[in-house]
């Protein structure tokens, strides 16, 4: 652990929390461009958050303390997960506290709380959303874990820093298994972030929605935190993807110059990643909810195949 490492840790956390809405804004912007619409501006998510924070909270009569504390818990868990994923440097103090499995567990913890909060008021929508979210979750979570496992089989470690260092800072080797893992990861991230083939972030149509159905009862600052957490989640997933598949530019241990250079590299990678996400969303159509298990099952099996391919070709 070095001074640079601690600085990188704080920088990462601050960056993630502050820039996550920007990434969401950028994806929306790209989507609007691709759809030939005039975009609301890249800073729109910040305006929405500022507005929501000012507003009064309207709570249902029977909302329990769990309902009121869930937004903070969810936001806290996702902020922690953002701090765990190496985006700027690999020498992070928190890295020893939580590895890839713990990261998946942390994302699952956030999911558990949002689902429980959705069931708290007891409206039909909330439970429906919770049920669907958990359905997506129980298939997406093991798939994500298998993607991490493929990477950790390659690097002989489940520690995210070691994985990134093994892929980025060693001699360039092509890993065929990562092709499978990459496809699986994209599918999982689309589902986890309620993007288009599974859920549509832009609609409030009852029959199709997952995320929006869960947060229907939230308002004011609670809703702001939930929305902020959602964009953090997208940011975290994007960073996981970059760390696993394009880790180039992430600084090694104790390297101040590397850290400074990692910043523009990250920004560029995120910009490209966001545009790619918008493109994928443009090219695909929303699925029926019953197709979702098939989509996620395919992702899960692809991730398992990635591990097999590693054993076969790279063992």
């Amino acid at each position: 652990m070095s001074a640079a490492g601690i600085a990188a840790q704080f920088a990462e956390l601050a960056l993630a929390v502050l820039l996550a809405p920007l990434l969401t804004g950028w994806v929306n912007q790209c989507r609007a461009w691709l759809q030939n619409k005039s975009a609301p501006g890249i800073l729109q998510p910040y305006r929405v958050l500022a507005k929501l924070f000012q507003k009064e909270v309207i709570l249902a009569h029977n909302a329990s303390p769990l309902f009121r504390s869930a937004p903070y818990l969810i936001f806290g868990s996702l902020a922690l997960s953002a701090a765990i994923v190496p985006t700027l440097g690999t020498d992070l103090p928190l890295n020893e506290a939580a590895d890839a499995i713990a990261l998946v567990g942390l994302l699952a913890l956030a999911r558990l709380f949002i689902a429980l909060a959705a069931m708290d008021v007891g409206t039909a929508f909330g439970t429906l959303g919770a049920r669907r979210e958990m359905m997506v979750g129980f298939l997406a979570e093991p798939a994500l874990l298998m993607v991490f496992f493929t990477a950790s089989l390659i690097s002989h470690s489940t520690s995210l820093s070691t994985i990134v260092a093994a892929i980025a800072h060693r001699e360039l080797v092509i890993y065929p298994s990562m092709a499978f893992a990459g496809v699986a990861f994209v599918m999982v991230s689309l589902a986890e972030n309620a993007r288009i083939p599974i859920d549509n972030p832009a609609t409030h149509l009852e029959l199709t929605m997952i995320h929006e159905a869960m947060v229907l009862e939230y308002s004011g600052r609670h809703l702001a935190l939930i929305e902020w957490a959602a964009s953090l989640k997208l940011f975290v997933h994007m960073c996981i993807g970059l760390a696993l598949f394009f880790p180039f530019g992430i600084a090694g241990g104790g390297d101040w110059l590397g850290l400074v250079l990692a910043l523009p590299a990250l920004a560029a990678k995120l910009a490209v990643g966001g545009a790619a996400l918008a493109l994928i969303e443009m090219l695909s159509a929303k699925m029926r909810i019953f197709r979702a298990p098939e989509f996620l099952g395919t992702a899960f099996l692809l991730a398992v195949l990635a591990m097999l391919v590693h054993v076969m070709l790279e063992g």
Binding site: I174, P176, A179, F180, L301, L302, L305, V309, E314
Partner: peptide, 16 residues
Amino acid sequence: PQVINLLAAVLLLLAF
């Protein structure tokens, strides 16, 4: 050879 391995994996991916 690495690229050939990669292509093999892609072939399998396409088969799936």
